[in-house]
């Protein structure tokens, strides 16, 4: 058994704070997550929102999976940033809006 709020420690070398925040946002309807940071660790204090207590374990498990997805999304986003900017610059190239 665990006490509420449940504490989940996350290594910041593996998951950055943006990833943890985005994963937490996706669960805002099911979990209340307070994120704090100290000495290379991110700590999530997790509680169920009212009405979602029975699915708490399942939601926490899905939250952990979501961390992986968000990390992958961040990797894709970082790696494709210059391509995104280039696509937009082509898209607007005849708009007369460039400086």
């Amino acid at each position: 058994m665990y006490q509420l709020p449940m504490k989940l420690e996350i290594d910041e070398q593996i998951y950055c704070i943006e990833v943890v925040q985005k994963a937490s946002y996706r669960f805002i309807d099911r979990l209340t997550i307070l994120i704090s940071k100290s000495a290379g660790k991110l700590t999530c204090e997790i509680e169920p929102v009212i009405g979602a207590e029975a699915q708490f374990d399942e939601n926490v498990a899905n939250f952990k999976r979501e961390l992986l997805d968000q990390q992958l999304r961040k990797q894709i986003k970082d790696e494709t940033e210059s391509a995104r900017n280039l696509i937009l610059s082509y898209a607007f190239s005849r708009s007369g809006l460039q400086k």
Binding site: I87, L88, Y90, A91
Partner: peptide
């Protein structure tokens, strides 16, 4: 590739 995506973006909007 990038130019084509730019063109498609322009079409979309």
């Amino acid at each position: 590739s990038i130019e084509l995506l730019g063109l498609k973006t322009r079409t979309k909007f």
